Every structure is written in structure tokens, then in C-alpha cells.
Amino acid sequence: MATKLQHTIEFPFGMAAYRKAISDPEYWSTLAVGSDKAPGELESADITDTGAKIALIQKIPADKLPSAVTSMIPGDLAIHRTVSIEFTSDDRSAGTFDATVNGAPATTSGTIEATGSEKCSIAFAGEVTVRIPLIGGKIEKMIAENMRTLFEAERDFTIAWHDEHP
């Protein structure tokens, strides 16, 4: 059984500024590097006038993982993420996101809807699935919460990026 994942983030600027940020390959490279808690790398960035297709790898060091995860997956956790966004109009974009973990029966996928000419709002809707008897639901809830935290952190990163790259 899957756990629903829904979250909305808001920006103090409109779609034009959001689109400018996510259309810059350097934005994605810098975002992918992450932090000591979750370092990562940019696998690919295909950015055109009509959208962006991004592939990232984020790593979570084993010492930052709960024992329920490390008992099944030894070592650091590598999360492969893809984001696909289509710029549908000046004040709207739509896309998809997904994440998988090598060696784990866990997936996350969903849609991304961004709107707003004056202030941009992005709604994420999807689900987290962990196919492990008895404890899968508990891990799904943990992953869903971590995804919401990730969306918030990426919002903060984007606002800082916007401020530094007017």
C-alpha cells in the first residue's frame, strides 16, 4: 500500500524568476552538490526553451540513516531522482518527479504543478511505495516526511539562488 505525498511551497517571486533559476544548469549543479548531510551530484541536465529534464543522485551517509534502513541496505544510501518540467505558459509549468533507491524496494513519484505570475506556488502530489512486509508503511511515512523537508529545503535554496543571481 502506498503513502500519499502532497505538499505545496511558495516563492516570494513569480514564475518568470522561478523559470530563470531552473533553466540555469549551474542552478542544478549547485543544488545537486547538497550538503554534508546529503551530498549529491548532477547526472544530466537537458534544458530547452520549453522545459527541463534533470537527473540527480543524492547520497545519505549510513550514519544518518535509521537502523531499519541500514539493516536492509548496507552503506550509504544513493537516491536517484529525476525531475521533468514543461513550461506550458508564462505563468504555469507542469511536470513529474520520481526517486528510486538502488537495492531497495522503495519508489517515490508524482506530479509538479507551478503557477503564479506575481508569486509562484508549486504543488507536489504523488506517492511513496515501500514493498517490505510489516514495516513498509512506517518507512513510507518517513520517506514522505523527508520528501516534504527536501521540497522546503529546495525552496529555500531557490530563493537564495534568486537573490544571488538577479
Rank of each mutant, 00 (worst) to 15 (best):
W28G: 02
G51R: 04
H165P: 01
G14L: 02
E145W: 02
E127L: 15
S71N: 14
Q58E: 06
F97Y: 14
T50N: 13
V101C: 04
D36V: 11
D91S: 14
K20F: 03
A62N: 13
D90K: 15
F97S: 02
R155L: 05
Q58P: 00
L77N: 00
L134E: 06
A114I: 02
S67V: 13
T107Q: 10
D76V: 06
T115A: 07
A62E: 15
A99L: 09
I73M: 04
S121F: 05
P133R: 09
M72S: 08
A94D: 10
Q6Y: 13
L56D: 02
A114Q: 03
I139G: 08
R19Q: 09
H162W: 05
D46C: 00
I159D: 13
V130Q: 04
D91G: 14
I132K: 12
I47R: 02
E10R: 06
A62V: 14
T8M: 01
E43P: 00
A106C: 03
T115W: 02
Y27K: 10
E152S: 11
I79Q: 13
A160P: 04
G95N: 05
P66E: 01
P166E: 13
S23N: 06
M147T: 02
Y18N: 03
V128W: 02
P25K: 09
T70H: 03
S84P: 03
I132C: 14
G40V: 03
H162C: 00
A16M: 06
A62S: 15
I22G: 00
K138T: 13
Q58T: 05
A55D: 15
S109N: 14
T96L: 11
M1I: 11
L42S: 11
P12W: 08
A78C: 05
M72F: 14
A68N: 01
S29Y: 08
F157M: 09
N102S: 06
H165I: 01
K64P: 01
K59Q: 12
S109L: 07
D76F: 15
T50F: 03
A38Y: 06
S84G: 14
I47P: 01
T129Y: 07
R131T: 08
G75E: 12
M147D: 15
R92A: 15
E113K: 09
G40H: 10
V83H: 06
A21V: 01
